[in-house]
Design a protein around this nucleic acid. Structure first.
Length: 509
RNA sequence: GGAGCGUUGGUCAAGGGGUUAAGACGCCUCCCUUUCACGGAGGAAUCACGGGUUCGAUUCCCGUACGCUCUACCA
């Protein structure tokens, strides 16, 4: 393992894992693996208000389902523990204090109300979002303007306070992004971000820098929404004296709503009728269930594949990639700069392709579970595989196997007799009576034999074969779908075939 | 408002100074199949706008428009 490359995925346990999240994990993973490096899962749980019980386990399960198993994580452990930010709390305070001592940060005692007053007071048409910056900080209650004794008194009295970074007036901060190249920010336009919150927990800005340093992270992939705060992070690496160890950044394009514009959100899934989470997620606070790709019948191979090409393309015509192939072929410089709208139709196409591509043994178990959920226990594995093989071309989602194949195991509950009745005749009725009798005598129950017998009888009775196949299909399947009728007859067996013909004849007489 | 980023068919996209501007999804037509699919053959549909540079710009440069992200003691 090449310890030179260490990349991490750092979700916060606040809910389900959405498409953008999984894609970020995926790119992190691909990059780490193709360089023989280490893929790390770190949990960013410093926001106590939004922390959700169970979300961390959920994330780990999603990763396992997708096959993106981390080398180091809270669950697996690793040499750079802890992998949960809340367990590193003391270290953040220490670094924040160090920055204050160095003069790169300061204490701010402003209450939320005072901040609100400042923002509304400074708000103008031209400046709808005033910030705490090198101008406004002069009028606030912080250790930059208060005299030292006052600051000491406030601290001694345990006055709630935060630590803010002191942004320089006039500096150009340059970020080298693996996807976008060099991006420049002027420091006067960046605000004095809070580094350490009043509850003693760090904000993302401090935590990500301290953790990435502590875990020796070399490459950092994250969503584009982080791009504007990159200058803060750069400065922190500098102030803490770690510039030489700073990871290389890559800001990934966003996954957008299929209609309209904007970042894809959980709500869009409900609204437009498709999943946005990897797996089912039940919010313990509201008990609200959000459906996942897994439960909807997606294969992890397809899920990973569709996500990989939503923001990356290797330049060839290839669209279907296995995880191994992705590790081989992924490259950061082919990652797109612009966001992509999510297209559920295309997503389903990927799943369809993977269902056709993979051997049925790969998803036999999941389909069996779906059957069990519908009250049917699979007992004959050999038959089950045969059936799956027979209908896989017609299944887009794993759940489609139920509607496409349940009739192989239990007689259809309803027959679409309406589509045969108009053309039904006594001749046909007689034909099936004869066929039924002949079928009883068949010894070698093969599709070919049934077909021959069927054809011969049709010729005898002088009825066109085509006019008989549809009724036969309805008798066996219940509707106008499924593989070849004689194949079906073969799989469901002699007795069952005869029984279904018999039953249908009573309905039609 | 500001900053950063972006803009090739409806969507995902390849390409990149001279091309009939790939391919995929979706849509339409036909073939196969007397079911539904799969498969096969076709079709409609695109370089945001304006200036430059150039013999020539979809491609390079500058503007404009539009979009997105950020502008929290959230990440």
């Amino acid at each position: 393992m090449n310890e030179k490359v260490r990349v991490r995925f750092a979700p916060s346990p606040t809910g389900g894992l959405h498409l953008g999240g999984v894609r970020t994990v995926l790119y992190n993973y691909l990059f780490a693996k193709q360089h023989g490096g280490t893929f790390i899962l770190r949990i960013e749980d410093t926001d106590q208000a939004r922390y959700v019980e169970g979300a961390e386990d959920y994330i780990q399960e999603c990763l396992a389902w997708c096959g993106l198993v981390p080398d180091e994580s809270p669950l697996h452990g690793g040499p750079f523990a802890p992998y949960r930010q809340s367990e590193r709390k003391e270290m953040y305070r220490q670094y924040a204090e160090q920055l204050v001592t160095q003069g790169n940060a300061y204490y701010a005692f402003d209450t939320p109300e005072e901040l609100e007053i400042m923002r509304t007071a400074l708000k103008t048409h031209d400046n709808p979002s005033p910030t705490y910056n090198y101008v406004s900080r002069e009028k606030m209650r912080n250790s930059l303007v208060l005299d030292q004794q006052e600051v000491a008194r406030l601290l001694a009295e345990n006055t709630p306070h935060v630590i803010r970074i002191k942004m320089p007036h006039d500096e150009t901060l340059s970020i080298s992004d693996m996807i976008r190249g060099e991006v420049n920010f002027h420091s006067s336009l960046v605000d004095d971000k809070v580094l350490l919150k009043a509850d003693g927990m760090p904000t993302y800005h401090l935590a990500v820098v301290v953790d990435d340093h502590a875990m020796k992270i070399t490459h950092a992939f994250r969503g584009e929404e982080w791009s504007p705060s990159a200058p803060v992070h750069i400065l922190l690496w500098k102030y803490l004296g770690w510039v030489d160890e700073m990871p290389q950044w890559a800001h990934l394009p966003l996954i957008l709503k299929p209609d309209g514009h904007g970042k894809l959100s959980k709500r869009d899934g409900d609204r437009l009728g498709f999943p946005v989470f990897a797996m089912n997620w039940t919010d313990p606070k509201t008990n609200e269930l959000v459906t996942g790709f897994r439960e909807l019948g997606f294969l992890p191979e397809a899920f990973i594949n569709l996500l990989a090409v939503l923001g990356w393309n290797d330049g060839s015509e290839q669209e279907l990639f296995s995880l191994d192939e992705l590790v081989q072929k992924f490259s950061v410089d082919k990652v797109h700069k612009g966001g992509a709208k999510f297209n559920y139709e295309k997503a389903k196409w990927f799943n369809h392709e993977w269902i056709k591509k993979l051997p049925v043994s790969r998803y036999r178990l999941q389909v069996a579970e779906i059957f069990a959920g519908n009250g049917l226990t699979v007992v004959d594995d050999e038959k089950f595989d045969k059936v799956l093989e027979l209908v896989k071309d017609r299944c887009t989602l794993l759940t489609d196997f139920w509607s496409q194949a349940s009739f192989f195991f239990e007689a259809p509950k309803q027959l679409d007799v309406d589509s045969i009745k108009p053309k039904w005749s006594d001749d046909k009725s007689m034909f099936f009576d004869i066929v039924k009798e002949k079928l009883i005598l068949v010894e070698d129950w093969s599709a070919a034999n049934v077909e021959i017998l069927f054809k011969e009888t049709a010729t005898e009775k002088n009825i066109k074969l085509g006019e008989l196949q549809l009724p036969f299909r309805i008798m066996l399947v219940g509707g106008k779908f499924g593989p070849g009728v004689f194949e079906i007859a073969n799989v469901i067996g002699k007795e069952e075939t005869i029984e279904r013909i018999q039953y249908a004849l009573t309905l039609l007489s």
